[in-house]
Amino acid sequence: MWTPEQLDTWRATHPSKGPARNERPGALERRAPVEWHNLRTHLAFATRQRHPILTADLQSLTEDAMHTAAQELDAEIEQFAGQADLIQITVRYPARVSVANLAKRLRGAASRALRQSHGIRGNIWSNPYYATSINAHQPAGLSRYVQHLEQPVNN
């Protein structure tokens, strides 16, 4: 075992290469996590039995509710397109959030907002939903696809 004098002598002859961890400024401060992923998904939610219940006001309310829910998950809705019976969104989300949880939270927030503001009762959304992963270059093609869906069909 070393005596305090021996330790002092050894420390004097072997200087440290940098400040000790607890001596660095801000060493004990918590750093924000760095996101290394750029995950995106395209989600589509249909109304129950495809009933055309989503008016322009309800689509706007749905969009606001989904934006708020996405922010709580550190996600971002990049695109939102609504029809009377279908909502399609493109979402960027962190790796710690599963697509299933993301869809559940977004649909739940929209359902609560629609029930509280307009008194809609019962299930609003169909149980199944569509989800696919997309890369950073696909949103432009996805925008064209959504615009094509919004065009009326000539019978």
Score class of each variant (00 low, 15 high):
Ala69Asn: 00
Asn155Trp: 13
Arg11Tyr: 09
Val97Pro: 00
Ala32Arg: 15
Gly82Glu: 07
Ile120Gly: 03
Gly122His: 07
Pro52Lys: 11
Phe80Val: 09
Ile87Asp: 01
Ile87Ala: 02
His51Phe: 10
Ala20Asn: 07
Leu142Arg: 09
Ser111Lys: 07
Arg50Val: 03
Glu76Tyr: 02
Ala113Glu: 04
His51Tyr: 10
His14Thr: 12
Ala131Tyr: 03
Ser126Lys: 12
Ala131Glu: 04
Trp125Gly: 02
His118Ala: 09
Ala32Ser: 12
Thr3Trp: 02
Ala109Thr: 02
Leu142Val: 13
Trp10Cys: 06
Ala12Cys: 13
Thr90Pro: 02
Gln138Leu: 14
Arg48Cys: 08
Leu86Phe: 05
Glu63Asn: 10
Ile89Ala: 10
Gln151Gly: 07
Pro139Leu: 05
Arg40Ile: 08
Ser98Gly: 14
Gln6Lys: 15
Arg115His: 15
Ala65His: 02
Ser133Cys: 11
Ala109Phe: 01
Pro52Ile: 08
Arg92Cys: 05
Gly26Phe: 00
Tyr129Gln: 01
Leu149Phe: 08
Ile89Pro: 01
Phe45Gln: 01
Phe80Asp: 05
Val146Arg: 12
Thr68Glu: 15
Glu29Ser: 12
Glu23Lys: 12
Asp57Tyr: 05
Ala75Lys: 00
Glu76Ile: 06
Gly119Ser: 06
Ala103Arg: 01
Gly18Lys: 13
Ser133Asn: 07
Glu63Leu: 11
Asp8Ile: 14
Asn154Tyr: 11
Asp8Leu: 15
Pro15Gly: 05
Asp64Ile: 06
Ser98Leu: 06
Glu76Gly: 00
Thr9Arg: 13
Asp85Tyr: 09
Asn135Gln: 06
Gln88Tyr: 01
Arg92Asp: 06
Tyr130Phe: 15
Ser133His: 07
Arg112Tyr: 07
His137Glu: 11
Asn135Tyr: 03
Ser60Val: 06
Ala84Asn: 06
Glu78Asn: 06
Leu7Trp: 10
Arg115Tyr: 06
Arg31Ser: 09
Ile124Asn: 00
Asn154Glu: 11
Gln147His: 13
Trp125Ser: 03
Val91Phe: 00
Gln88Val: 08
Ala12Trp: 12
Glu23Asp: 12
Pro139Arg: 04
Pro128Trp: 02
Pro25Thr: 00
Arg40Glu: 09
Glu76Thr: 10
Lys17Arg: 13
Ala65Gln: 04
Thr9Ile: 14
Ala109Gln: 01
Thr62Arg: 00
Ser60Asp: 13
Gly26Ala: 00
Arg21Met: 10
Asn135Leu: 07
Trp10Gly: 01
Arg92Ser: 13
Leu7Val: 15
Tyr93Cys: 00
Ala69Arg: 00
Gly122Tyr: 08
Tyr145Thr: 07
His137Gln: 14
Glu5Ser: 15
Thr9Gln: 13
Trp36Gln: 04
Asn155Lys: 11
Gln6Glu: 15
Tyr145Phe: 11
Pro33Ile: 09
Gln59Arg: 15
Leu142Phe: 02
Pro4Thr: 05
Glu150Met: 14
Ala20Lys: 11
Pro94Leu: 03
Leu58Gln: 12
Ala75Arg: 00
Gly108Arg: 02
Gln6Cys: 10
Leu114Trp: 06
Glu35Gly: 10
Ser117Ala: 15
Pro152Ser: 09
Glu23Leu: 13
Gly82Asn: 08
Asn123Gln: 14
Tyr145Asn: 03
Pro128Glu: 02
Glu63Gln: 15
Glu76Arg: 08
Glu5Phe: 14
His67Asn: 11
Arg30Ser: 09
Ala69Gly: 01
Gln49Met: 11
Tyr129Val: 03
Asn154Pro: 08
Ala131Leu: 04
